[in-house]
């Protein structure tokens, strides 16, 4: 039986979030909390593999108590079980400390039911780093496969999987040993409208919640703010692109205007001295 764990996170919806104009940091209360959109695809992929090969899908998150909502969303998508680690000691964690804490939780899950595959979203929309997945894989000593945009086969008996990795100019086909970790692109699947029985199950669902004291062999210095070497030295908003120009007049006039503007940009027409 295949056991797939998806690591997920609740994030503020950055489509609507406001920035604090003084500190340039996100005002997290200004936006609703949602399941990180990439993670929805991770869970969906896990559910598809379960439907294809049989098995169970668990999801794991680290977060404050309201993050239970994100786990429920995963149950709606079709996950079977949800685990959450929640403790003040985890607060302020960077990607290093986060991957450490999640690894400790995965080890605990593993004791009950060995894990064959871990799937993460490509990155979170509030942090944008994409480092947690590979961090977990290193700590668990399994191959990390990033930018996965297609799973061709997962073979538990022979302990391998074949996937596609998205590259800038095509894709790479890889065969890997199990257990391993994928972090997946959005285009790997479409998350469908959940069936009603999943919605009802999710509405009732109570995930397993662990505090630090429930985990084993934890080095507390590696948790939370203490375990986070990342220093944010400066936060600034990206430069606003200069607004374009809207041309007036008849189509004929507009074409003339744009041609003369293009022709004025001499640098576009300079001959390349060397190279291609």
């Amino acid at each position: 039986m295949l056991h797939i764990v998806a690591c997920i996170k609740q994030v503020p919806d950055t489509k609507v979030i406001k920035l604090n104009p003084k500190t340039n940091t996100m005002d997290r209360t200004s936006a609703p909390a949602i399941l990180n959109p990439y993670d929805a695809h991770a869970v969906e992929e896990a559910v598809r593999l379960k439907n294809k090969y049989g098995g169970i899908v668990s999801v794991l998150t680290m977060g404050p108590p309201p993050a239970v909502k994100a786990i429920r969303k995963c149950i709606e998508i079709g996950a079977d079980e949800g685990y959450m680690i929640s403790d003040r000691a985890f607060a302020g964690a960077d990607t290093l400390a986060t991957s450490y804490a999640l690894t400790k939780a995965l080890e605990k899950i593993q004791k009950d039911t060995p894990i064959d595959l871990i799937i993460c979203g490509k990155m979170t929309i509030d942090g944008d780093t994409g480092q947690v997945g590979p961090g977990i894989a290193r700590r668990l000593d399994m191959p990390p496969l990033t930018n996965v945009n297609k799973v061709v086969e997962v073979n538990k008996e022979e302990q391998f999987a074949i996937i596609h990795r998205k590259l800038e100019d095509g894709h790479e086909v890889i065969q890997t040993a199990l257990p391993c970790l994928f972090s997946v692109e959005k285009e790997i699947n479409e998350v469908p409208f959940s069936p009603l029985p999943h919605m009802i199950k999710a509405a009732r669902y109570k995930p397993t919640i662990w505090a630090v004291s429930d985990l084993e062999d934890v080095d507390k210095t590696q948790l939370g703010l203490k375990g986070s070497p990342t220093i944010v030295s400066k936060v600034w908003p990206p430069e606003k692109p200069k607004g374009g120009e809207i041309l007036d007049g008849s189509p004929q006039e507009k074409v003339e205007q744009i041609l003369s503007m293009v022709l004025e940009k001499k640098e576009l027409f300079q001959q390349h001295k060397e190279g291609v």
Binding site: P192, F193, L196, I200
Partner: peptide
């Protein structure tokens, strides 16, 4: 009957 798959209760 709801608008969801398997949507009857």
């Amino acid at each position: 009957r709801t608008d969801r798959p398997d949507g009857e209760v």
